[in-house]
Amino acid sequence: MKEHAVAHESSIHVVLKAEELWNIAGFPITNSLLMTWMTIALLVLCAFLFRNSLKMVPGKLQAAVEWLFEGVLGYMAETLESEKLARRFFPLIMTIFLFVFLANELAFLPGVGSLLWGDTPLLRAPAADLNMTLALAIIAFLTIEITGVAVLGFFKYAGKYVSFKSPVDFVVGIIELLSNVGRLISFSFRLFGNIFAGEVMIAVAIFFVAYLLPVPLMAFEVFVGFIQAVVFALLTLFFIKIAVMEPHGEEVH
């Protein structure tokens, strides 16, 4: 178990965790961290190039980006039922999507997993490392909970989970509290599991037939990478919506 999801010689080695390439003053630099930096650098570069070519009369690329932004913002405003909240959370949701999407798709570049540094792969899909998905999950979780407190107030928000109005309310509240914490796990493992499983599947396919057979699987994994980015961003949005909703007892039905 000392190899990334790539077939070497005549066996399939699957490593669950990202591997350390270098250790700088006690800080481990792993292959997935390196790839994360590359992804971020690419996004930042594109953002700067794009900003410098912004025009009042848009070109095709600008029109496409604007269409995407306006569509997402419109959908968010519809979901959150507030233009103001939508504008506030748009950067977070959009960044989650862009980052996860690009990170997943860049993993299909040739060289990812196959370039070696010593005997460890130099690059690894960022989402195939639980550190990255868990960090994103924690950010999403904190955003959701803090938003709930900020919009509803601490006691009203806490009242959603700790309620003594009736035994049923109490139990429901506790279950909701647990499911909230459970999001940390579902968020991180969903993304990790999907991307990691995809890599393992492609590695297995390459082990059996190195040519052509992996192509449809890779096409499917490209799609999965997109879907997982959408799912992560959308679920964050929906949980924010749930967090800012008035508690059940006070809704008018």
Binding site: G26, F27, L33, T36, T95, D129, L130, A135
Partner: peptide
């Protein structure tokens, strides 16, 4: 799963910077 608080923090900071 190789979870290490240093890497966790690094990834969170990465995302924060990107955001």
């Amino acid at each position: 799963f190789g979870v290490d608080w240093k890497l966790l923090l690094a990834q969170a900071v990465n995302f924060g910077v990107l955001l």
